[in-house]
Design a protein around this nucleic acid. Sequence first.
DNA 1: ACAATAGTGTCTGTTAGACACTATACT
DNA 2: AGTATAGTGTCTAACAGACACTATTGT
Lengths: 223, 223
Amino acid sequence: MTESALPTVICTVDVVLLTLQQGALQVALLRRERAPFAGALALPGGYIHAQEDADAQASAARVLRDKAGLQSPYLEQLATFSGPVRDPRGWSLAVAYCALVPPEVLAQAPLTLVPVAELPALPFDHRAMVDAAVARVRSKSQYSSMPVHLCAEPFTLPQLQAVYEAVLGEPVNKVSFRRKMDELAMLEPVPGALQGGGAHRPAQLYRVRPAYRRNLSLSARGL
Amino acid sequence: MTESALPTVICTVDVVLLTLQQGALQVALLRRERAPFAGALALPGGYIHAQEDADAQASAARVLRDKAGLQSPYLEQLATFSGPVRDPRGWSLAVAYCALVPPEVLAQAPLTLVPVAELPALPFDHRAMVDAAVARVRSKSQYSSMPVHLCAEPFTLPQLQAVYEAVLGEPVNKVSFRRKMDELAMLEPVPGALQGGGAHRPAQLYRVRPAYRRNLSLSARGL
DNA sequence: ACAATAGTGTCTGTTAGACACTATACT
DNA sequence: AGTATAGTGTCTAACAGACACTATTGT
């Protein structure tokens, strides 16, 4: 067996870009310009460019930048999907990534937001990728700070709690939630910044401490 | 940009095969027969064969079968490693898998067991793969039944507890451990089968219930 | 004053772990 | 009988959630 005798494997990346809007997780889809499945809504994705990409994650970041005009949101490798039939062009391998952004960032991006609960039929195995991403986000939200990436800074604790509740799909205990956020020591109040506007006590605004901006904060137990 | 103009990405799989021996996690290494790094100890791995493999996991299973003579142990996708420098042959992508087997299975396999705490220098980025596998196993052992795959059936609860303690690197509370195993409902006693031999009360032998043989059992909380 | 939400103090039920006890083998 | 480990009953400390209270704004 020689290297050159091996049939080529088609190497791509796909990004499951999730955000929160109208209290529901939404996945960002893009209308495909090229075959296969030209004209269909699908996950943003593309070939790995061995000439320029430092690794598959860089490919995913490049895809996000070129196709959605976004740069460096939270980006995490999800899983790799492969096989002879998932792509009509041949045996293919796609490294799937999960990105989380606050909805404000997507304002003028050429993306179609679809609630993950009402997914249309998707080409390739993009449905499985979305399902894996949603499961991952729900799971990690139970014991980590992952959902803060869905919240534009600065935000109030009630806002962040609403994000957790939307992702988890169930109400969260206020006292426990605030205790945990305090223990995680990941947020800091913005001095003197309060969110007013309502006919009630204004809420303290918080931001993520610099040390936690890139890394998630994990809790030993739940919430 | 055309498809055919893309430089080829070298697509491989690598398997981090872990077992437990002398109370410590051990990784199974294989001496490489071919360049690059011929003669060096490395993870079992190989090219994806697009002609025959149903997906990358099938490639990993094939590598395990052909190079170690093992079939269908617990096999889970870990992560994908990629980039221009990890392999001297060029831009490469390796899907890493984690396999768990009881030590008895490796009896006559042509593998070198090395404690993960005393890893030698490894070629490629195999060190990062081993680290990722060990971290995954330690993490999942805290809330799932994963370690049962390191135990040959049938086993006693004290034996299984020792496996958990070896993986986690810390003692486990006996009462809590048995409560959790009971709650997970994943084990069933082998009727009338007791493990004697010592100068003390014999222990009940257990096996994994068929429904849980392939799937892990997860606990909402720890242990 | 009132309404509405932010934020906190405290109580209680649940759960994990510590400890001590019983059970059952072999010597 | 003595010893060693298997297996269980029970107490306690830690923790998550429920509830109720105070705080602070706009109307």
